[in-house]
Amino acid sequence: MTPLFQVKELTKFYGNRIGCKDVSFDLYPGEVMGIVGESGSGKSTLLNCMAGHLTPDAGEVLFDTRADGMRDTVSMSEPERRMLGRTDWAFVHQHARDGLRMGVSAGGNVGERLMAVGARHYGDIREQAIDWLGRVEINAERVDDRPSAFSGGMQQRLQIARNLVTGPRLVFMDEPTGGLDVSVQARLLDLLRGLVREMGLSAIIVTHDLAVVRLLADRLMVMKDGHVVETGLTDQVLDDPQHGYTQLLVSSVLQV
């Protein structure tokens, strides 16, 4: 099996300050990787560099494209990268309002990616939008409502539907359950797990919530001050952390 996605010595500086430095890893099809660390550890910088939202200072971000196999997405042209962003890649923002068009109906939000890749049949677009709303447990009656009329959890589910409708192969998620009530988080996690398995998605999830990665991620990468300090199987890293920082992180979680 060949990797779907490879990151090689990815480095980003903000002036003299390190954003992230020399990050390398391979992600295989169907794998879910968690990136954990505190605020300021560089995990969001890393995610944004990988997803093409930030330009890294050094390193490569390779993706196994359908047409031409492994390509460095950092050096590919912007139109190609943006095309990837609406087809094979998806990005789930922490705040749904960053990932949704708040003035556009739920159906329009889901349909946008379809229209962006050339869908021009209203009936088909609407049918797919309703199908996806169902898959993220939003009632079909809400298809014409704007996301501003939705609860936080619904908005996040809508954002996920909007991202997955074109059948991407790699999903980037930035704190997908952040800011949601615990019960809403659980529902979302369950939904994400199901979708990841059904669609055979690969995913990279950035979070500071260790419970989230335990349930969603196969593998874990722990970051501190822009460096990766530990990687491994999720339960191994959480149950038998090797690095001092990871030990601190794990032991700092409040038990319920």
Partner: peptide
């Protein structure tokens, strides 16, 4: 401007979609 440059016009149809749905 970037959308024009890269011919990313899916959004224009979103507006028409909204019209029909309403």
């Amino acid at each position: 401007r970037k959308m024009h440059a890269l011919e990313e016009y899916g959004l224009m149809h979103v507006k028409l979609y909204e019209d029909i749905s309403k």
